[in-house]
């Protein structure tokens, strides 16, 4: 049983530094899995390996059982691997309608159509509106993304990823930097993400981790340190040690 996403002996070195150290990890189907660890534990490197921004020195990555280790980013994305970014990566000059619409039309294979006018396919428009409603972006849907409040941009970051209908979604610190007033909205939409999408959440915010995840893995110095249910992890003295000892608890 390979799960939705699996790594076997994954390693990445930068010069003498081992950023990812022999990680064998499985994300189950429909999972709500959190990956935690102190700063510099290699969480973002791990995500970049999974998505293909970086290429691994050793090891294998399986997406729904298919070896994607050597595939470029866009092919993994086309096979159902979606992600959000720790720092917003949005199209500043485009509106939310255009950004989500682009993702939907790319998914439907219409992204290369150069002779069709935008806004002609009503099925796409209906889906865009549905997604924007789900992520509470209706009021700001036709404003340039760069001018949206930060919390709305964070929501759009997830909406764009979800518009590609990924089978596996990697959320890289979705709540980072969101002001307290806009947080509730974000947490609600996270909780309402479709159950058939397998989600790996990378997060510093322990409240969010424990409210969201049904399984937790701990990464320390690039290696998997512990894994288990939230209850087990909460009471594991080693995990508390790593977290409290490293002085990085947020």
């Amino acid at each position: 049983m390979s799960g939705a996403l699996q790594t076997i002996g994954l390693s990445k070195r930068f010069g003498g530094l081992t950023a990812t150290d022999d990680v064998s990890f499985t994300l189950g189907h429909g999972a709500r899995h959190a990956l935690i660890g102190p700063n510099g534990a290699g969480k973002t490197t791990f995500i970049n390996l999974l998505t293909g921004v970086l290429s691994a020195n050793e090891g294998t990555i399986l997406l729904e059982g298919e070896d994607v280790t050597r595939m470029p980013q866009q092919q993994r994305a086309r096979r159902g691997l979606g992600r959000t970014f720790q720092i917003n990566q949005l199209f500043g000059a485009m509106t939310p309608v255009e950004s989500v619409g682009l993702a939907v039309s790319e998914r439907m294979g219409g992204g290369g159509q150069f002779w069709r006018r935008l806004g002609k396919r009503t099925d796409i428009v209906d889906e865009i509106v549905e997604l924007l409603r789900q992520f509470r972006l209706i009021e700001v849907m036709d404003e340039p993304t760069a001018r949206l409040p930060y919390g709305k941009q964070r929501l759009l970051e997830i909406a764009v990823a979800l518009a590609s209908q990924p089978r596996v979604l990697l959320l890289d610190e979705p709540a980072a930097g969101v002001p307290e007033a806009e947080r509730g909205e974000l947490l609600d939409t996270l909780a309402a993400l479709p159950r058939d999408v397998s989600i790996l959440l990378i997060e510093h915010d322990m409240d969010l981790v424990f409210s969201f995840a049904d399984r937790i893995s701990v990464l320390v110095n690039g290696a998997l340190f512990a894994e288990g249910t939230p209850e087990v992890m909460r009471n594991d003295p080693r995990v508390q040690d790593v977290y409290l000892g490293s002085d990085n608890h947020v």
């Binding site: 470029p72 949005l90 485009m94 950004s99 039309s105 790319e106 159509q113 002779w115 069709r116 935008l118």
Partner: peptide, 25 residues
């Protein structure tokens, strides 16, 4: 016609943020 098509939209996206465009597939 080409720059105002879905293809043209994807070009705008690539120019704006190629990293995200790749992550989008």
């Amino acid at each position: 016609r080409v720059v105002t098509s879905p293809y043209g939209l994807s070009l705008r996206a690539i120019r704006d943020n190629a990293l995200r465009a790749r992550a989008m597939g």
